[in-house]
């Protein structure tokens, strides 16, 4: 079977963080970890091309997955392998999105990353096999990936034994009795000693490696962010009051503080009367400026990012988080204060 391999700019040998903004490109040969994977797959399956893209570009452009998919299709491959991305968040998200897009386009697809990488949630319905934490475990990981490739290529589905991670898709259906009756049944079952009975498995939110500390806030570029639905009066970007489908950015420039009437919260999950009377209650610009003037903060980033955190799915929330982090990193921001409503 002809395989195309997706990697980020680092594993393609293009460069590190300074090359994270490069767009997608294709090479007609296995590259980086793809060479080892190719040798593990032997003659039966060939890696005919490598598609790579910078992490920032891939994780923070809505169009990136589509552009990468075009390149994947141009190679004529029948199967995509993305990663392994280990615990790298942006790379994992990119692998997840590319695998999902390729799967939907009819290619056999497989992504590889750590079980707690936020990209796992992006890959569905394409399968993801779990890897170790870092590239130090590359050799063992590639052997696992090679086994998964052979199994998928033979028409079989992966199982937990193959390292398959992520929950399957959950779908609505009608139960035989109403939720109240089922809740009473469940209470009696738990009283009788069944501690595992539940209709909802405990979710696994994954883990994010915290960024290192900044050495000196008085020299730092600091951003103010909120999920409190704060927008300029009139809501020019039409931010939703619930289940937001986007995040927006608005200038702070040299505004000394937010004022009643210049900014409002469109959040639908709480009464915004108190916030709108003084929007600094949502985004603490007034005191941040004071602290900047006194030298406790170096510079305040000239825009704020906003979305509405109300009925937002974890998948969307994680995506906004990754996009914010990528964008802030690109702008040289070292620390951010995000208010949560």
């Amino acid at each position: 079977m002809k395989i195309v391999h997706y990697v980020n700019q680092f594993f393609a040998g293009v460069g590190g963080e300074e090359k994270a903004t490069v767009g997608p490109e294709v090479r007609q040969a296995p590259t980086g970890p793809g060479r080892k994977l190719a040798s593990l797959l032997g003659d039966e399956h060939q890696i005919v091309a490598t598609v790579f893209c910078g992490d920032d570009y891939a994780a923070s452009n809505d169009s990136a997955a589509g552009e990468i998919l075009e390149l994947i299709r141009s190679t004529g491959a029948e199967m995509l392998v993305a990663g392994p991305a280990f615990t790298s968040g942006r790379y994992g998200i990119a692998c997840g999105r590319v695998a999902a897009a390729a799967h939907k386009a009819g290619l056999l697809s497989l992504a590889a990353m750590h079980a707690e990488n936020p990209g796992v949630a992006e890959a569905a319905p394409a399968p993801v096999v779990a890897t170790g934490l870092t590239a130090r475990e590359m050799a063992a990981t590639l052997e696992k990936v090679a086994l998964a490739v052979r199994k998928l290529a033979s028409g079989e589905s992966l199982t937990r034994d193959d390292g398959l991670v992520g929950t399957g898709a959950r779908h609505n259906r009608l139960a035989g009795s109403n939720a109240a009756s089922r809740a009473v049944d469940l209470a009696l079952a738990r009283l009788a000693g069944d501690r595992s009975a539940t209709e909802i498995p405990m979710p696994d939110f994954g883990a994010v490696t915290p960024a290192g500390p900044i050495s000196d806030p008085s020299q730092a570029l600091v951003a103010l962010l909120t999920e409190g639905g704060l927008v300029p009066m009139g809501n020019p970007g039409r931010l939703e009051s619930a289940r937001a489908t986007k995040w927006l950015r608005y200038p702070l420039d040299e505004l000394p503080a937010l004022e009643e009437g210049t900014h409002i919260s469109v959040h639908g999950g709480f009464s915004t009367v108190i916030a709108n009377a003084d929007p600094n209650r949502i985004l603490p610009l007034d005191v941040a400026r004071e602290l900047r003037d006194e030298g406790a903060i170096g510079t305040i980033y000239a825009e704020y990012f906003t979305t509405t955190g109300n009925g937002t799915s974890v998948a969307d929330g994680a995506r906004y988080g990754v996009e914010w982090a990528a964008e802030l990193r690109k702008q040289g921001v070292q620390a951010a204060i995000l208010t949560s409503t």
Binding site: P125, R170, R195, T198, P203, S313, V314, A315, D316
Partner: peptide, 21 residues
Amino acid sequence: SGPDGTGPPVVGPPSAATAMI
């Protein structure tokens, strides 16, 4: 859990009382 049902089902789950309907 999102339109395709693949996200975590509950945002703020209990820690000890794990029986949910």
